[in-house]
Structures are given as structure tokens and as C-alpha cells.
Design a protein around this nucleic acid. Structure first.
Lengths: 183, 183
DNA sequence: CCAATATATATCGGTTTCGAGGTATGCTGG
DNA sequence: CCAGCATACCTCGAAACCGATATATATTGG
């Protein structure tokens, strides 16, 4: 998830670690802010993998910066991860939102729609948060206002996402792009 | 988060590891399913800490089970975690929902309301997912339908939660017991 | 003038987590 | 009768992550 975010942000423009940290924190900070001890080793890893290169520059505000540039390999890696996300990227809400934030970097609307359809299929599977033995429990079943709230919020989120998914998949299919066969 | 869920589920009834795994997966599986290699060491850790005891029983269906019982210390630990959640439990969506699932186990409506107010304060802080330099970007600013969707969904979730928080805090303050929903 | 703050990068030890693998048992269908 | 599956528990190595810590510079406010 962190690596995807780094690849995605660098796809737009070269950044240094500190700036990257602020952007990643804004995108995923609701869930969990990124620690320095996580970010810098991740950058190092990715540089070793050949996905980005580092170049020293004098700092605009203070200490010298190490500017990060996405390589062609890094760009290919980003596209691979966006086009063929694994099941966890689809089901894990955090990973899914990170993926969504950069899905525009796939250039084929077909590929984008395919990813959205996978998410749609996942959301349409019936699930429950709580079980009594093997029987799934509905919201009405517990007097507990906190679990009721949990289900209410989850339902609202799910409805909003389903509506958006349907609309967007349709719009991608109906040739948001000139030159499509569907026209 | 995992430890909180274990404490919370065992608060209701003794369970064995396999059953616990199913319940934890239902509650948090949307985010990330729990691996055996995570659950069993966690149980071991918590037994060492004195929060639960294990008792062997013949398996109802197959292999023998190790039934898990919450101790008085475990119960105290659960209540401490619910009453005084740290900042990450409030801000991290996953941890927050896990906390919400067991908040009924605090017996003072005062304490429950105090936790909800902390979450409310967090949600009311203005935040943005994306920045152009230092300027936060609104939904209208990017043509990208995916980032628009991301913000749309996040907004819907936030609205649903805020509405529920306001209603529930009020109802807790006006002396309702956790058994009674809307009076 | 100096202290505090923001900018900027990095390492290290300890903890947690994951994924793969290993060991059993009892039921069910072919 | 036995193969396969669900039940049930556990360990191990590798990877990831966190929090603390270290280092250095420029600006800003008192």
C-alpha cells in the first residue's frame, strides 16, 4: 500500500522524501500516519529494485534534499499493480482507496473498468460483521447502539460506493474515449 | 486491534481459537483477514500476560479444542482500553470500528459518550486527501473520476457517522440505557 | 541574539505480522 | 474403505513496521 502510494505520487512529479511523507499522510493518514522509520527504508528498497533514482539537491528551505525520480521500471511496476491488483487490494478498504487514488494512471478505460468490476463483485457478496453461531446477525438484532451505528455507517459507505461504481463503470463503457468500438 | 477484538469477543463467552478466528475475520475481514500465524501467537502473548486462561476440551467436531476464558485481569484490560483509547484508536478507522464493536462493555454511559465525543472532535477537524503544494484540493478540482469517487464515498461515510454520533451522544447524555434505542 | 520550529534524511532495535508449512481428528461421499 | 474436506492448533523464517534517536540547516519570533 505504501509502495503503491509512492509509485503513484512520483508518477505525477519528482518529489523528495519529506514532501512524499506529507502527501502519503494526507491520503492514508486517516487510517494510520506513516512513520519516518517506515518511509525511508521503503524508499531505499524501491531504489534498490530500480523503481526510482535519487539525486541530491540543495534544500529550498533547509537541509539538502534527495529528489526522487520514477524510472521506466517504476512506471511499469505501477501500471502492473494497477492493472492486476491482487485480491487483498480489492477487499482491503485501505489498499482499495490507495489504488483508486492512482487508477487514472492506467491509460485503457477497459482496464480501469475491469478493476472497478472486481470491486463491485466483491461488494455485492453478502457479508455480515457478527455471527450467532453460524447465523449472520442483522442490525435490528442487537439493542447495542454502537454496533447499530457500526452497521449503519458501513451501510451508508457501501451504498455510496455501489452507486458511484455503477455510474462510473457505465460511463467508462459508453466510450468516454473517442475511437471506441462501442460508439 | 486484534487484541482488543479477542478481549471483546471473550467478554461475551469463552471461545476456542478456531471460532475466534471466524468472528475476528467477520468483523475485520473486510479490511484484512487474520492469519493463523498472527492469531495463535497473539493468544499465547495474552495468556502470558494473564488476560486469559486456556483449558483443553475434546473437540465437538474434530480435533481437541483449547477453550479460552477471559480472566478478571483480561476484563480490566478490556475496560481500560475502551475507556482510555489512545489517539490512534480514535483516528485509525479500523481500530475505531473495532472499538465501537465492543464499546457496550463500558458500563458508564458517561464514559461511552466521552469516547464518542473524542471521535466527533477528530471528524470535525478539516482534512484533505490531496494537496497542490500546501493548498488542499477539493473534489471539483480534478477531472479524474476515481479521485472524485474516493472523495464522494469518504464524504458519505463521514456524514453518516456524524449524524449517528450526534444522535447517540445526545441519547446517552439524556440518561438512556444502552439497551434502549430511540425513545 | 538565541531559542524554538520547520525542513530534511537516516538508522537501529524490538515487536508484530504474514505466509508457508506441519500435525492431528472426525465426518461425508463415492 | 478411503480420499478429501472441515475442524483444530501451532511454529518458523522473512518481511514490515514503529518509536526513538541522531544529525544538520534555515527561518521566525521573542
Amino acid at each position: 500500500m505504501l509502495e503503491l502510494a509512492i509509485l503513484g505520487f512520483l508518477r505525477d512529479q519528482p518529489l523528495h522524501g519529506y514532501d512524499l511523507r506529507r502527501r502519503v499522510a494526507a491520503l492514508m493518514g486517516h487510517v494510520r500516519p506513516v512513520a519516518d522509520g517506515t518511509l525511508y527504508p521503503a524508499i531505499k528498497r524501491m531504489a534498490t529494485s530500480g523503481w526510482l533514482t535519487r539525486k541530491d539537491e540543495p534544500g529550498k528551505a533547509a537541509a539538502p534534499r534527495r529528489m526522487l525520480y520514477l524510472t521506466a521500471e517504476g512506471r511499469a511496476e505501477l501500471e502492473r499493480r494497477l492493472r492486476e491488483p491482487d485480491e487483498l487490494d480489492i477487499s482491503d478498504e485501505n489498499r482499495w482507496f490507495a489504488l483508486l487514488a492512482f487508477l487514472r494512471h492506467l491509460d485503457e478505460p477497459e482496464d480501469q473498468a475491469a478493476v472497478l468490476r472486481r470491486r463491485l463483485a466483491f461488494l455485492e457478496e453478502p457479508t455480515s460483521f457478527f455471527y450467532d453461531g453460524n447465523r449472520p446477525m442483522g442490525a435490528a438484532e442487537f439493542g447495542d447502539p454502537f454496533r447499530q451505528g457500526l452497521l449503519t455507517i458501513a451501510h451508508a459507505t457501501s451504498q455510496a460506493e455501489l452507486a458511484w461504481l455503477h455510474a462510473t463503470i457505465e460511463s467508462l463503457a459508453s466510450g468516454a474515449h473517442p475511437g471506441e468500438a462501442a460508439c
